[in-house]
Design a binder for these strands. Structure first.
Lengths: 135, 135
DNA sequence: TTAAAACTATAAAGCTACTATAATGTCAAT
DNA sequence: ATTGACATTATAGTAGCTTTATAGTTTTAA
């Protein structure tokens, strides 16, 4: 199959496929006489793997790491689990940070209503004066 | 004051100050005969405002928008409040997405322990087969 | 048969918000 | 005179693509 079909199959843009190849995440496929890339089912699986990892929030570097484990199937999978554990704690700390931020924003928003002039806006005043009661 | 002092005062790097100037977020300061930038208290306040906005997660474009409101102090501050409301809902949807992601990751992690070979790793199998029970 | 539409190729720039590096110039102190 | 701390500009790098430009190929329609 050619790049456009693969792209449609997995739901990405063709440029994204070329980009992954360039980044070393997808093996370079064979070429037709005209230079067009020819993909196999294996490529499709590889690409789908990458996309699912991306949906899980893994970075390209982390995906690369997972692929290196796949290439050596008889080592223990501790490293895989550790990678995931690290990622989970990363996601958790992001959540915590965003929740703290939400609190700050909501309390800032409560310091104003819509019926004022910019000059007297509680939100702008709050930011300007640093009344963001941190943490 | 010169750029280094301003940087230390507000807690940013000198390059960041030049960057904000280049992006039109800080007004270009006067220069000494040798070309060095000379900053006033006003610049300090402007920079502090930018930094507090950044801590609140606002983009440079949003900060720019806020500045344009500040320049016209007698219009109603509805737009400011709307900007903040939009940002709050943005943050909330990020939190929601990350919480869903965390669930997915945790259940994926539960499908494996450390005592397997990569070949039998529940995590890798889960990603490969798309057992990520979405949503 | 030919011309347009659709697909492919490469290379390079753009996006965000900086950070880092390079090469150079200025100033105070030793 | 030279070292050190500071300043200047210009350029590239970061992540993960997306967009644009330019060009060649294949397929479809007139």
């Amino acid at each position: 199959m050619r790049i456009g079909q693969l792209a449609q199959l997995v739901g990405v843009e063709t440029q994204t496929i070329r980009f992954y190849e360039q980044q070393g995440l997808l093996p370079p496929p064979d070429r037709q006489d005209n230079g067009y890339r020819v993909y196999t089912k294996k490529h499709g699986e590889g690409l789908a793997f990458i996309r699912r990892c991306r949906i899980l929030g893994l970075s390209l570097a982390e995906i690369h790491e997972l692929q290196s484990y796949q290439d050596d199937p008889h080592q223990p999978c501790t490293a895989v689990n550790t990678l995931l554990d690290d990622h989970i704690s990363h996601v958790r700390s992001q959540i915590t940070a965003l929740q703290a931020l939400e609190k700050q924003l909501v309390s800032l928003r409560a310091s104003c209503n819509d019926d004022r002039e910019v000059e007297a806006c509680g939100v702008l005043a709050g930011i300007s004066e640093g009344n963001m009661h941190q943490q």
